[in-house]
Design a protein around this nucleic acid. Sequence first.
DNA 1: CTGAAAGCGCTTACAG
DNA 2: CTGAAAGCGCTTACAG
Lengths: 375, 375
Amino acid sequence: MDARTGTGPTPTIYDVARRAGVSIASVSRVLNGRDNPRPETRDRVHKAISELGFVPDGAARALSNRLKQVVGVVFRRVYGTDDGMFEDETESLLFGDQINRGIEIVAQRRGYDLLVSSVNIDEHTLPNRILTIAGKCDGLILHDQVLSPAGIASIARTVPVVTLAGAGGGPSANVRGDSATSMRELARHLVQDHDYRRLAYIAGHADSPDNIVRGRSFAAEVQALGAECLTGPAWQGDYSAGSGVQIIRGLIALGATLPRAIACANDQTALGVIYALAEHGLDVPGDVAVTGFDDLPFARHLRPQLTTVRQPIQEIGARAFEVLHDMITADSGGSAPTEGADHPLPDIVLPTRLVRRESCGCPPDSHPPVWRRIF
Amino acid sequence: MDARTGTGPTPTIYDVARRAGVSIASVSRVLNGRDNPRPETRDRVHKAISELGFVPDGAARALSNRLKQVVGVVFRRVYGTDDGMFEDETESLLFGDQINRGIEIVAQRRGYDLLVSSVNIDEHTLPNRILTIAGKCDGLILHDQVLSPAGIASIARTVPVVTLAGAGGGPSANVRGDSATSMRELARHLVQDHDYRRLAYIAGHADSPDNIVRGRSFAAEVQALGAECLTGPAWQGDYSAGSGVQIIRGLIALGATLPRAIACANDQTALGVIYALAEHGLDVPGDVAVTGFDDLPFARHLRPQLTTVRQPIQEIGARAFEVLHDMITADSGGSAPTEGADHPLPDIVLPTRLVRRESCGCPPDSHPPVWRRIF
DNA sequence: CTGAAAGCGCTTACAG
DNA sequence: CTGAAAGCGCTTACAG
């Protein structure tokens, strides 16, 4: 045995059996905590295991059990092309990583581990990469923006798939936050409580279901209340802070009159918008009110503190795992595949809520956050 | 075939072979991109594959190849006990997550995926959990603070292991940033350039090798320059912002005279220290200078901007994968295990550098960060 | 309680 | 170029 790399023909269950003077079946039984091997046998086996430094091979186990106890999680890489491989990233990591944390915590309780993989949406070998990943897992959780609806449909025919923040009624099970209700509430708050009459929505990725719902709900409610909601290509962002910066700079450069309030597709974008506004000496919320969506941790540390919509981020991840786990175990149930509508695909919508802080024009929170709870 | 869950006896290579009218060997060959199957055969196989929605089973493949193309990454869970499962977390995620990103980017190029798993250091089944993870991977990367040196030694005898931020010369290969050099440089900067005479170091986890090196290097240099460096239990933190807050509050409550400058074990701690200082009306750096370590993205957004030591975080992760990959491929080389010193365990030390910003007393950066680069 | 044997789904010499 | 067969390291009925 090489004490440094674990080299030397890795011991297998056969080596353990030989050393303990039992059959591999018995070794397997103690490995799996069965209660039939009698204590004396069990001890011999345990002794052999630790003497050999034996670790059961997960692949062999998976093959035999037809269960890997691994779920794949695929998300979109923010940056990370070959050119900018170690370019700075920041808060942009948080949303996806927090979802993953939620998935992981729940998965662990069921003995599952996470195979995480970020993909570049431009990769030409994307379908292949995802298939390789799928082969290593019992099921897949796909974050938003990693695969086209057609791509999702295709992979979902082959392995259990849960999408995050996708559209309901799509080709896969789905879990998302309730964007519509709280965007309407936000619109009412801005128009009715603050009496803003000219507003705008800065969009996220044009093909993101969440973005579409947010934009529509907001604009519809604003207009229903008799106020104006600016739209159009000038307001098309991509969920990044950078896009928020560019949009504001562009508008100001054109000499456009800014709206009184800007609702952003997410917190990231709002961060960029506030930065760009400050850059031009404009006060938030004095000159322009700005709001976000997600309530990432940094939202309450911003100046001004960001009014936003709180999504239960980790819970979205946790729920996604649960749905996937149900699909995985149902699968192995071996029941004849049913084509009908008797098992409609779940589309879980988790509640969100409007968090009014300063950036919309509300007074500062009189209860500043307690550090213990945050860190 | 169930269009919804991928149910229905999942097709295997046998099904593909039958449908294409070839042997499973041929299917395997086209699957692996060999060039011997002639085009005509290859097309038939590809057709059968897509018609059946066949995905090769990673476990079977791994068993046959004796290679899973999966590396395990284990890190310590910050919070996430059952009580506070969805408690807020924040920047504390960034350090570990950025390392993981670095690992992943490089791993992907070699066709490896990451099996990530956070562990609670108090778990009584920790060794078992880690063994289960090990069984699903070709090798393991262990973040700091997940396992005792003895635990690391034990697992490293069984599977290839690389630790992060561990001590050199330990029981496993290791990758870390150079803490000593830049902490000495920091000490010189504070004492010589700013002329501070009374300083302190707020420690991280007492058993963290990085922390030990940082504290010793800093204190030694400060003293060598004839200044004073406070130490002792009053300055013992745990790398969290909360511990920074508590230490400052405690000191102030006791009526202690604060030192002129405080070097923290990491940025998180500095964040807490600055917050607690502000809480008591103390100015940074006017009354007390504060510095961090890591240069997490938020460091430059703090007020005042944080003077800190920049670690190449993603590179640490990337390098760890490369070292591990070397160990994995060397292992399968099947060469007789060598016990001697001919393959000393790598202990990679990556360069760091002092980043002087405002919190040490230097003038504000005249080149504020450009958003495009940051987000 | 224990063991011999089949089987999980691949890959790869080895023959043809 | 292609196929039959052995083998990767487990688990689990099935007999005893």
